[in-house]
Simulated assay, not measured.
Amino acid sequence: MRVLRSRAALSFGLVVCSGVLLLCLLASVRFGAARIGTWEVIGAFVDYGGSEDDLIIRTLRVPRALIAALVGAALAVAGAIIQGLTRNPLSDPGILGIEAGAALAVVGSVFLLGASSLTTYALFAFVGAAVAAVVVYGLGTLGGGMNPMKLVVAGAALAALLSSLTTAVLIFNQRTLEEIRFWLAGSVAGRDLGLLLQVLPYVFAGLLLAFVLGRQITALTLGEDVATGLGQRTAWVKSLSVAAVVLLAGSAVAIAGPVGFVGLVVPHVARFFVGVDYRWILPYSALLGAILLVSADIAARVALRPQELPLGVMTALVGAPVFIYLARKRSKG
């Protein structure tokens, strides 16, 4: 189904989504564990005095809102690419073992090296995610080129193996579990602008590559024979698509931990509005993913104030019912 049919309507929809995202970012800065009024928020930007409220706004809430938006956009676009590449509507970035690879790398860094800072977690998570994706892609191309089924099987097998190893380490060493359990649940709490700036170039490169490949991914969703008949070099398109997924999902997991369901749910919402053209699905997914994660982060902070829920719990509350609905729908189909 396609709700927005004309190019003008699709363009206007992007403007509306951008406006909604801006409102969500403002709400993220306004609401939190500490009760800060609207005028105090405005004063933190126009009349900065170094008060406690000013510091909370500038050093905690603004970076947190921006990181949540960036992570949401990256995961949603990565999920859309994976669904198009595998032609499987139930796929998400976890299918390449990215989240499992990142988790094992972080757990290993804590267990073996005693790592304790978020910056170190991010570095090891990105490397682990990239290595896992490369291994899955290599396994998926054995025996004469990559196809969606081989990629899914290889990803599921490697993800299961890496998750088992991660669980074994956590059972063996309770200290490691205590140190990283909040990261494993997914969170943007405590992240600063320095961490954001570290991953921003990778996310930007991944988004740019994804948007450039929009037309080619659309053709691939029609089948590899159709894409080849249209003159596409499908091997290159698949390789570049996987590279975009690694950059996007690897950066997102590195900075926020394994946040589930965003890459699964958001592309379906985008398709509902724009249809099957990935030139529109990808930018809509980026904006809708950012809106979803910023909104989920607000809910995580205020639901049990002053306590805070992990961000992954909030996305699971939204994503799990949608996943069940999609699975049942696909089964009936």
Rank of each mutant, 00 (worst) to 15 (best):
S164L: 09
F273G: 02
V265F: 03
A102D: 03
G260I: 13
A210S: 15
A327G: 11
R30D: 10
G97N: 04
A129N: 02
P89H: 03
A156G: 07
V77L: 02
T315F: 01
K150E: 15
V212C: 13
G275R: 01
Y325W: 05
R215A: 04
A296N: 04
D47G: 10
G43C: 10
L309Q: 10
V106L: 05
S239K: 14
G128E: 01
L326T: 03
R301G: 06
V15Y: 12
G50N: 03
I291S: 02
G84K: 08
G114V: 15
V77W: 05
R215P: 08
S241E: 06
T141F: 06
V253L: 01
G275L: 02
R5M: 12
D47Q: 12
A125T: 11
W236G: 12
R279Q: 02
L10V: 14
G79I: 02
A160R: 13
I82G: 06
F31M: 09
G49M: 04
I42Q: 08
V110Q: 10
D92E: 15
L158V: 13
I255P: 12
G108H: 08
G140W: 09
Q174K: 15
G319Y: 00
V302D: 00
V169T: 13
V266K: 06
A243D: 06
A270M: 05
S18N: 14
Q198F: 11
V71T: 08
A159W: 14
R233Y: 12
A316R: 05
D92F: 02
P258F: 12
A252Y: 04
A286P: 05
C24K: 09
A69E: 11
I98W: 03
I281Q: 01
K238R: 11
A69H: 06
R64D: 01
I180N: 10
A219L: 00
V253C: 09
V269D: 02
K332W: 14
A299P: 07
A189P: 02
S11D: 13
L142C: 08
G143Y: 06
L96P: 12
A156R: 08
S116K: 15
Q216L: 09
G79H: 05
L60G: 05
Y137E: 05
G263W: 00
Y325T: 11
A256C: 09
V107M: 07
A154D: 03
L200E: 10
L55I: 10
I255L: 15
V169M: 12
S295E: 06
D92W: 00
W280S: 04
R328S: 12
S164P: 08
L75W: 00
R5S: 15
F323S: 14
S239D: 12
L213A: 04
A105C: 01
F45T: 13
A252N: 08
P89M: 00
L264I: 04
A156Q: 06
L220K: 00
A44W: 03
G50P: 01
S6V: 09
G79W: 05
F31L: 13
T86M: 01
F323M: 07
G155E: 04
A296S: 14
L282T: 04
A254P: 08
V71C: 07
L66M: 07
L104R: 10
